[in-house]
Structures are given as structure tokens and as C-alpha cells.
Amino acid sequence: MSSKSRRITLTVNGEAVARDVPVRLNLVDFLRHDLGFTGSHVGCEQGACGACTVVLDDQTVRGCLVLAVQADGCVVQTIEGAGNGDNGLMAELQAMFHLLNALQCGFCTPGMLLSAHELLQANPLPSREEIRDYLSGNFCRCTGYQAIVDAVAAVSRARREAPAA
């Protein structure tokens, strides 16, 4: 291969990883094809659709707009590893998405969940409007968004009424 490579070490979903990667490889392709974390998806490669959303050093980012080499030394979480130490928040979101059918094809879902998770961590009681606003960078083509908004609002309400231990 003609690509120039670099060695990177990083933590992905709690595990230390060291790999040689072509410098032009973006983070989501690295996670998917080099590490097999295929939960993050590729929908546009221009940062517009949100399917590739992953968590980099505790903040959501577009996995297609970060080079794998830029994540050297960083801590990355994908949907496969999300929810560690979050007091059950991600598991509740996943359960509520399931219950309310807040997904169809599932391609946007990991990104949608990570965005919703970030919102509820920063703002435990968002209004519907705030939920729609925060998720407005994640494209879903199947649902009408409403079940997604319902699910996030329902988790928020449930945690207010019965805070997790």
C-alpha cells in the first residue's frame, strides 16, 4: 500500500490498543475495519449525518472528521463500550428505544444514542424542544424522530422520578 503509516496507541472501549495505521485513515473506518467495532456507521463522510458519532475524550465527535492518528493517546468509546460508569443511563436509553420503537433500520441508532446520552448527562431534564435541538445533527430516515424524542424524554422523566442508585 502506498499510504504513509504511523503507530498509534489509544484506549478503545476500555482496552488499550496499539496499531499501525495509514495516516489518511479516519477514526470511524479505523474503529470499524481495524478493530471490528462496527457499531458506528458511515453515512456521508462529511460530518453531516451523525451516523459515525463516537465519544472521544468524553465528548461526541464525528468519527469521519477525525483522523485515527489524531486519536493517538486518546480515550474512545463506541456504542459497544458506551455506558460504563454512567449509572445505568445508556442501558435505560437502549431499553426505552426498544420499548417505544425509537428505531427502525438501526443505522443511525448508535449515533443517536450517544448524542442523547451526552445530552442527558449535561441536562438531565431537557424539554422536547431541547431534545430535538440536541439531536438535530443526527439524521434518521426511518422514524419520524418522534419516538426517539419520546424515548429520551421518558428516560429523563423516569430518572427524575426514580433516580438510579
Binding site: 462496527t38 457499531g39 456504542i79 437502549q94 428505544f97 426498544h98 420503537n101 428505531l103 443505522f107
Partner: peptide, 22 residues
């Protein structure tokens, strides 16, 4: 009835074509 398959998709364990490498 909620969908069985949705649980797999929610955990990031869906398998779409690009997830497969031969």
C-alpha cells in the same frame, strides 16, 4: 410488541454489508 431485532441494533451489533469483510 417491540421488535426483537432492535435490541441487537441498539447495542451496535447490527450487521450491515459494510460490516462484513471476507
Amino acid at each position: 410488541v417491540p421488535r426483537d431485532r432492535a435490541k441487537r441494533l441498539l447495542s451496535g451489533r447490527g450487521r450491515y454489508v459494510d460490516d462484513i469483510n471476507l
